[in-house]
Nucleic acid binder design. Sequence first.
DNA 1: AGGTTCGCTGTCAGCCACTGTCATAATTTT
DNA 2: AAAATTATGACAGTGGCTGACAGCGAACCT
Lengths: 229, 229
Amino acid sequence: MGSTSTAAPAAAPGLRERKKQRTRDALVDAAHRLFLSQGYARTTVDEIAAAVDVSQRTFFRYFANKEEAALAILADAEEYFIERLADRPPEEPPLLALRIAVCAAWRDLSTEDYQQGSRGVGAALELLRLIESTPSLLAAQLRRSAEQEQRVAAILAARQGVDAVQDPRPRLLAAVFGAAVRTAHLAWSTAGDRQREEGPEGMIAVIEAQLDHLGPALVAGHWSSDTGH
Amino acid sequence: MGSTSTAAPAAAPGLRERKKQRTRDALVDAAHRLFLSQGYARTTVDEIAAAVDVSQRTFFRYFANKEEAALAILADAEEYFIERLADRPPEEPPLLALRIAVCAAWRDLSTEDYQQGSRGVGAALELLRLIESTPSLLAAQLRRSAEQEQRVAAILAARQGVDAVQDPRPRLLAAVFGAAVRTAHLAWSTAGDRQREEGPEGMIAVIEAQLDHLGPALVAGHWSSDTGH
DNA sequence: AGGTTCGCTGTCAGCCACTGTCATAATTTT
DNA sequence: AAAATTATGACAGTGGCTGACAGCGAACCT
């Protein structure tokens, strides 16, 4: 480190950009802490900005709205999940690839150096509970999930070599997978603190259980057969 | 109709309540018309209230927020769907019951006297497009769908005689079904106007196609088999 | 090293969604 | 007809969010 010229392949961070990253992290941390301690609605944007000693205007240059600051951590995690999914070999069955990617994401993000600040597994649990109990946040989170599903569908379509707009199966599979993960989130965040002590393995177990239920649930639903309208 | 005494089993409407219903309908219609003509964001609540000649404060006594007014029609439709689902006999396979209920809802709401005002099939199409292109509305709609899924899950659990909190399958099936319907909405609203001319049958066909794809999509996803972690 | 350019930030002003409060008018009840 | 209930309007205030402009410091060029 410390090369004077501009040669690094991964683009030198630059003092300016490092400061920006630090400001953003500080805002996310402050928002997270305030939301958890006094609630989402009772925390004003001015408070968050003041805690980091920037103006309210600057807050909105980092986040489009208050919700985005609250969901920033989840957004980063989902970004990581997308990368892991893209890593999987195309020969792998789609649902298996999804399963491995989501488990890898949870494991990595819990053990790696992402632990600092408000980015641990315990914090994730409290965040999920906060989201579930705050209508405005839940709405924003579901919208983000919908966008995420579009991206997943595109990746699946590319893997299988089918057209993403013509063939509805990638979208449907992505939606089903998203539903399973969301159901797992809900089950995990309401399951009491016993699960919490198990760390990421607890969450992974719940997700896998949901995925295992997919088949039986649909079979029990007798989805086939003619309806006769 | 026109009985003078208070004898009707379904509780006499009363002058007050009829007026309230008319105000609400007028607000929904005005909001719908303004949203479609000038866009959601460019329409202020004051405009909507002024169009019906009530105060802004009154608007917020009918709707918790601007989104709720936009989604009121969908909310009524989903209410009707829930009723149809509750009508289905418990012996019926769950997914078949869901399928019949959603098709019946679309058919009934298109042919019945619900056609007045902005409650036709054509209006539904434009509304779905508006929602899909307005982040704020999409978020609110997805949150409503999530609540709806909880209700559906409860009904399914009761039908099958299982515990709604212990057994995750009703929730999962409800989520999967919701995903299929949402995917169908998206496909229908972006399918061009050819579908629109087919009336409700076009929409129903798309939904049924999505449901038919559920099985193959999951089978192609190789959901079973051990992953080995 | 010097000056220039560019991008981040703060300040100010303003719109609009949304809420609490109280007075008033209309409806229902007795 | 009087009293209790309830919808509505008028008003004021909070807070999320945006546009415009100016200042300052990093980055880039010579």
